[in-house]
């Protein structure tokens, strides 16, 4: 005990001195500890865990975290966190192809954002929902891009994620110049945050796809190269594979260079168990390969198609279980 007390006091002396000096600076009128809502802390922590899981495409884990975040936010009666949790849940469900669940979650998020007059969240949820509906060919005929605020397609008006969603939507709706301006708004952002770098990589990929559709293959190649550079910094394998596949499809480099890129894309798609990516990469490789090499690649493609066919059949006949996600 004789040893214990001085040890404890010495250990605590530094922070104590800091506190004392700072408390003095505040004029001594500061109240030391106010009660904190533990559910709010829990919700923020679950959101953080969910966002980490998203980075690694661990959708089930992310969904669990966001569901817990939602419950905690509801217990804390914190509408801002409830709205964020619904939005995050919607993003994850959309990635898991749970369209109905995602739409429900987006509608909840939109409703709460309107209630809180939170224009950013409202716009985020609105664009994300439109992108989902576009993917599922369920975008209402009444939806028109010009109904959206014009500054969505101008630099610096909104957060990068909103510009990116607007850009992708414009690209899918064949509004190339609007898409280009919105992608530019994303790439103009400065910062080294991982999410921002990922979004910038996606914007460069968007530029590359736009350039290819305009037959500017050299520009498409260099934009894909920028995507790869950013992906290497942050680690985004799926986007890396897409960029490599795109380069393999462009008639810019030599055949051996393109083949090498396609093989790298194929390796990544195989590791990610992305059947459709593998199929595209294999088809391109067969097109570029010498006649002697094609039979082995064709056999591999055939096996992959059989597997994909069986999976599609299984998905039709059997209800989705936990293990299928």
């Amino acid at each position: 005990m004789k040893h214990h007390i001085p040890h404890v006091f010495r250990a605590g002396l530094l922070p104590a001195l800091l506190l004392v000096s700072l408390l003095g600076a505040c004029g001594g009128s500061h109240k030391l500890s106010e009660p904190e809502n533990p559910y709010r802390i829990q919700a923020s922590n679950h959101i953080h865990n969910g966002l980490t899981a998203i980075q690694y495409e661990r959708w089930q884990s992310a969904e669990r975290s966001f569901e817990r975040a939602l419950t905690s936010a509801q217990l804390a009666d914190d509408l801002r966190l409830v709205c964020q949790s619904w939005y995050n849940l919607a993003i994850v469900r959309s990635a898991q192809r749970n369209t109905e669940g995602a739409i429900t979650a987006y509608l909840h998020a939109t409703e709460l954002a309107e209630l809180r007059h939170d224009t950013l969240m409202q716009m985020r949820a609105r664009l994300a929902l439109a992108l989902l509906q576009q993917r599922e060919a369920r975008l209402p005929d009444t939806f028109k891009l010009h109904q959206l605020p014009a500054n969505l397609f101008q630099t610096g008006s909104w957060p990068a994620d909103i510009h990116l969603q607007a850009a992708r939507l414009a690209q899918l709706l064949q509004q190339k110049s609007l898409a280009q301006q919105a992608y530019l708004a994303v790439t103009a952002n400065k910062g080294s945050d991982r999410n921002l770098l990922k979004m910038k990589a996606e914007a460069h990929m968007g530029f590359a796809l736009l350039a290819r559709s305009d037959n500017s293959e050299t520009l498409a190649w260099s934009e894909a190269e920028l995507t790869l550079e950013l992906c290497r910094k942050i680690g985004a394998p799926r986007l890396t594979a897409h960029a490599l596949l795109l380069q393999g499809q462009l008639a810019v480099g030599t055949d051996s260079e393109r083949k090498q890129r396609l093989e790298r894309a194929l390796d990544i798609y195989t590791a990610l168990k992305d059947g459709s990516g593998q199929k595209q990469a294999l088809t391109e490789l067969i097109r570029l390969s010498l006649p002697a090499q094609t039979p082995a690649l064709q056999l591999r493609l055939q096996q992959l198609e059989d597997k994909l066919g069986k999976q599609a059949e299984k998905a039709k006949t059997l209800p989705l279980t936990d293990g299928d996600h």
Binding site: H48, Q84, Y87, N88, V92, D161, L209, H242, G277
Partner: peptide, 17 residues
């Protein structure tokens, strides 16, 4: 710091060529 941006999931876009 813009708290909302840090606790909102980035969009998951399908960019496959």
């Amino acid at each position: 710091v813009g708290d909302d941006e840090q606790s909102v999931a980035p969009p998951v876009l399908e960019m496959q060529p």
